[in-house]
Design a protein around this nucleic acid. Structure first.
Lengths: 104, 104
DNA sequence: AATAATACCTTGCATTACAAGGTATTATGT
DNA sequence: ACATAATACCTTGTAATGCAAGGTATTATT
């Protein structure tokens, strides 16, 4: 799959899950990857950015089957950012589809 | 509009026009920009790549209202590449939409 | 003669995804 | 007990692409 297509979209995908409930990083990799392959090397830096921009806050939680997990919780700013990005994406993909179907 | 969204897609947009008829660079900027803003600094390097990969061939034609125009013509390889890219894009955007609507 | 419009082009920057590497903990197989 | 796999975190360097900002040259307009 064309890697370039993913630019900017994987961010929305991750936010979409975080809008539902708190996730830890590894869990997000698996969840998103059910639909679109995303790498750990993509997710962790992305979550770090969210954290720096205060779109999420984080907390650690012990696991009984492995190392401790770092959970990410969407802030109000994060929810707003998600809504905005989602709107932009819808507009964008509509524009692309209109362009591609302009001959009909 | 989020610049990242455009990565890889503008290529398909340009190909979509070239699949119809021969265009010159400046004309492509205007045509695509009716739907999605694309810069000259994007189009010319992109067309250069197409040319290097032999997805297009080019010819010059005088204009009676300005400098000569460099036209781009899609090769057979270019058509195939366009079809493939279009398929990938459809698959990709379907996957994204499925992910975003998974809760319904 | 000066400005705008057309048409071509390049350089350097910003952004993001990923492969490939690493560390540490717990589970499983032998 | 020991080795391997699975889980879970992380970083570094590379590749790709879009764009702003610059440039050149031709023709049209004022």
């Amino acid at each position: 799959m064309n890697t370039q297509f993913k630019k900017g979209i994987l961010e929305i995908c991750v936010l979409s899950y975080l809008a539902e409930k708190d996730y830890y990083g590894y869990e997000l990799v698996e969840a998103v990857s059910e639909h679109i392959k995303i790498s750990e090397g993509t997710v962790y830096p992305l979550l770090r950015r969210f954290s720096n921009d205060e779109l999420v806050n984080t907390y650690l939680k012990e696991s009984n089957s492995g190392p401790p997990r770092k959970y990410y919780h969407l802030t109000e700013a994060g929810k707003k950012y998600y809504d905005d990005q989602l709107n932009d994406w819808m507009e964008f993909s509509n524009s692309v589809n209109k362009l591609l179907r302009r001959k009909e």
